[in-house]
Design a protein around this nucleic acid. Structure first.
Lengths: 244, 244
DNA sequence: CGGGACTTTGAGGTAGATCAAAAAGTGTGG
DNA sequence: CCACACTTTTTGATCTACCTCAAAGTCCCG
């Protein structure tokens, strides 16, 4: 059973990966008040255009950021995993330009903007850490624009799987490793800009190429190098290494 | 002849559009030291992977942020116009994950990260303003991911033209207005994820639909509403209105 | 055991890519 | 001011990756 400490600790790990924080600053993050909310499967918990006053930390499960075309088709512009403050950006810009939806069931921890902003005001190093977190988010988004604009269908799917492998801390010479995967093929299509049918075919291609095996609820990396080659994936943009 | 004051004043306008700043904070921004650099046509002035220590403010002309696929194809992930601090994010994350290239000739004003970071440390309101600026940038990127993932070719081109109209301060019941446009059709293809040939055909379609006329170096809005409809464009994500 | 959501497979259509080349514009040096 | 090279725009013909529509198969949960 997850609790708020798990969530905040995960987020702090994420922050300290890229920013130096002293003991006081770390303690301040871990002391952030909020409430733990369980979100049912595939439910919007932040609506488009809504004026939000709390940010959502993913504690367990996954969530997606969705943009919506006039036609009603949705595009997933970001996927969030445990430890991500999914809409930290809303502290700076409270009007949600994208919706947040759970992917499968998930648990979130809601933290009031006021408290986060207060921390930023009192600790310049935290202000910078929050800023940096948003910038990394934008870097991932920018990479995703490249993927959507330039890569073929098989490469898009491979790229997404490789990115998530890295963010989950798997990958890099870890053939055979597996991780939970709550997305349906239709949702994978919403992320890659493909139809569910074509996603299915691409998954088959990737499986037959011996790169990755995607079953419902579970992804197994078969050949990390091959996956990266097909997906034209280079993890540097994720900024996961402290030594940049 | 542009000078550094023009550039910083434009940027300050951009910042105050979305953040309240007092007299002291405004003065501090306007006093930022740096140097004015003239960049020749289509030259990279920030390279991929480079460790940068200065941020680039666009003073005149345009610049693009480029991602690069393994195959060498480039994707423009953002377009910057005068008044944009194109890589303000580099203050938080100095390793460039994308390149910056002039589009046509442009003039930039380079400001040392140290000076910007110093301002952020001393004025929490400025720290927040810089953060917010990056967040708006990310919101535009997120919209662009939606466009690349979900819209048809004619809509992508229309969307980009509509977005730039708004950012240039044109648009909204201003049929017949025109603005400078340094992008070639090939570059427009790099932004929209299309081939130059197909961009050309889409421009014809938009012209014949009476929406917009794109000539070399110049764009004329023929029918703003129609352009927005074709491009599924809704300017809210740009956060150009103070009242959100 | 039954119903709904998800995955898989098939057949055929289409938006946009690719290849090719002509036409128009732009700048440079004579 | 013209001649030449180069870049950009425009048009045409063909090809293909991905979409659309349709239906069967599988899994999961009550």
């Amino acid at each position: 059973m997850p609790d708020e400490n798990t969530g905040l600790a995960l987020w702090l790990d994420r922050l300290t990966l890229r920013s130096d924080l002293n003991e006081e600053e770390r303690a301040a993050v871990l002391a952030l008040p909020g409430n733990l909310v369980f979100v049912k499967s595939n439910r919007d918990f932040v609506n488009l255009g809504e004026h939000v006053d709390r940010a959502c930390l993913i504690v367990e499960g996954m969530a997606g950021r969705f943009g919506q075309a006039r036609s009603g088709e949705r595009q997933i512009t970001a996927l969030h995993i445990p430890g991500d403050m999914a809409d930290l950006h809303s502290v700076a810009l409270p009007k949600a330009a994208t919706a947040l939806q759970s992917i499968g069931e998930c648990t979130i921890y809601r933290v009031a903007h006021a408290n986060i902003r207060d921390l930023a005001r009192r600790h310049p190093a935290l202000a910078e850490a929050f800023w940096r977190d948003c910038v990394v988010d934008a870097a991932i988004l920018s990479e995703w624009a490249l993927v959507l604009g330039r890569l073929s269908a098989d490469a898009r799917v491979a790229h997404l799987l490789a990115e998530l492998s890295c963010r989950f801390g798997i990958g890099e010479c870890r053939d055979g490793r597996a991780f939970d995967w709550p997305l349906t093929q239709a949702q994978l299509g919403d992320a890659t800009g493909l139809t569910p049918v074509h996603v299915n075919r691409m998954l088959r291609v990737l499986r037959e190429a011996g790169a990755v095996d995607v079953k419902p609820k579970r992804v197994t990396i078969l050949d990390w190098k091959r996956l990266c080659t097909i997906g034209q994936f280079d993890p540097r943009y994720l900024h996961l290494e402290e030594a940049g």
